[in-house]
């Protein structure tokens, strides 16, 4: 109902959003533009650090140096792996939750979503304690005589994937769970009454309907992995640098802000590109069925 719209002045909505708008322009847009401009500056330690001007030097360096290629590729592979595991584990878990009695459901929900409220630093610490070379997993396995020497997990891709899946999988469960809640509880019974087996119902009726939830969940997980910082920094260290930790090192380590800014801009552009093209893809695919 837009009943009040014609009784009130047209300026009011702008006035109401003005405080937020001012803040966004001042503290959000301007800093981003500054970083964008900074990425075209140059850095020369012998001539006093950062020199303003316009140069594509930083971009050519990042785009041509195999050192950076490796870092970008590693970040991409990491994001794909984490997303795939989140889909494979998170989707069935959401469906199992969906089928639970409401009491058990809320208890399990607390266990799965609760970690989201704990700082990612704390959650990563937990994994560092578990997977360190004299960590609990290795100590236990060795004490039990199952292995002779520690399995290497700390500072490896495997360890990083495990920890990031743990950090991000709640988003996946949440997203699929939201899609499952929109599902008419009778459609599964309807499918079975028409002679479909449980597995067929799952594959042909449930899965297609929760696909948008799976897809939007994977987008969140992918984007957040690609820009994750604390977990790769603690568990990957210098040996497994990703884009975010590289930008950090350029800024706070070598103090080459322009190069760090160029890396940040590339990360941002990749992020926006992936999100918008993914959304377009989902929209095109599901426009008819879910509008």
């Amino acid at each position: 109902m837009s009943q009040q719209s014609d009784t009130l002045s047209t300026a009011r909505p702008y006035l109401l959003s003005a405080p937020a708008l001012l803040l966004y322009v001042g503290v959000f847009m301007i800093p981003l533009i500054m970083t964008f401009m900074l990425s075209f500056y140059t850095f020369d330690i012998t001539r006093g650090g950062i020199l303003s001007g316009f140069s594509l030097e930083n971009y050519t360096e990042v785009l041509s140096d195999s050192y950076f290629h490796k870092i970008f590729l590693r970040t991409f592979v990491l994001s794909i792996l984490v997303t795939v595991f989140c889909v494979l584990l998170g989707t069935p878990e959401a469906y199992i939750l969906h089928n639970m009695s409401s009491r058990w459901k809320s208890i399990c929900m607390l266990a799965i979503l609760g970690p989201l409220l704990v700082s990612v630093v704390v959650r990563t610490l937990g994994w560092a304690i578990l997977i360190g070379s004299d960590g609990l997993i290795n100590n236990t396995l060795m004490a039990l005589g199952l292995i002779d020497e520690p399995i290497k997990l700390m500072f490896t891709m495997t360890g990083l994937v495990i920890a990031l899946v743990h950090v991000l999988i709640p988003f996946m469960v949440l997203s699929v769970w939201a899609a499952l809640q929109k599902l008419d509880p009778m459609v599964e019974s309807a499918g079975q009454s028409l002679g479909a087996s449980s597995f067929t119902v799952l594959r042909k009726i449930v899965l297609p309907q929760i696909m948008p939830g799976v897809l939007s969940g994977s987008l969140i997980v992918f984007a957040l992995t690609a820009s994750a910082f604390a977990t790769p920094s603690i568990l990957g260290g210098r040996r497994l640098k990703v884009v975010a930790t590289t930008a950090y090192d350029e800024y706070l380590g070598t103090l080459n802000w322009p190069l760090g800014a160029a890396i940040a801009v590339l990360l941002l552009l990749a992020n926006i590109l992936i999100i918008t093209s993914y959304n377009k893809f989902i929209e095109r695919k599901y426009a008819q069925a879910f509008k």
């Binding site: 503290v27 970083t35 900074l38 800024y251």
Partner: peptide, 14 residues
Amino acid sequence: MVPHIVLGVSFLSF
């Protein structure tokens, strides 16, 4: 849509 690392470096310069 903006990675926190990008916000971080931008706020630092700002």
